[in-house]
């Protein structure tokens, strides 16, 4: 089956910005995630230390899950804003 273009998007001027933003946010997450993995590899006992009523593993682990959701919302908001700002609609409706 011929694999033509999947979608017919108009030119998206914010595409570079969105791709760059994605990479930066990815590296931001990798640093936090890397910290979690490093502690687990180097000294896993640190994860067993108390943090309030639970231990660090639970707080850090669930924190990573919540952080991913928050980053996704921020990414979506920034990308939507960039699309509106950079793709100005002309009078005849074309972007």
């Amino acid at each position: 089956m011929g694999h033509g273009p999947s979608t017919k998007w108009n030119e998206d001027k914010s595409s570079d910005y969105k791709a760059r933003l994605g990479i930066w946010m990815f590296f931001g997450y990798v640093i936090v995630y890397g910290g979690f993995m490093l502690i687990n590899v180097i000294d896993p006992k640190i994860m067993g230390l108390d943090f309030g009523t639970v231990n660090i593993a639970v707080v850090y682990g669930f924190g990573l899950i919540v952080l991913a959701l928050i980053l996704a919302i921020i990414y979506n908001t920034l990308c939507t804003r960039a699309e509106k700002r950079m793709n100005i609609v002309s009078k005849d409706g074309d972007e």
Binding site: P5, T7, K8, G22, F26, L71
Partner: peptide
């Protein structure tokens, strides 16, 4: 996270 931040946008751009 990899799919969202790294793959999604370039995939969409390449169509």
């Amino acid at each position: 996270i990899v799919a969202l931040f790294v793959v999604a946008e370039p995939m969409k751009r390449l169509g």
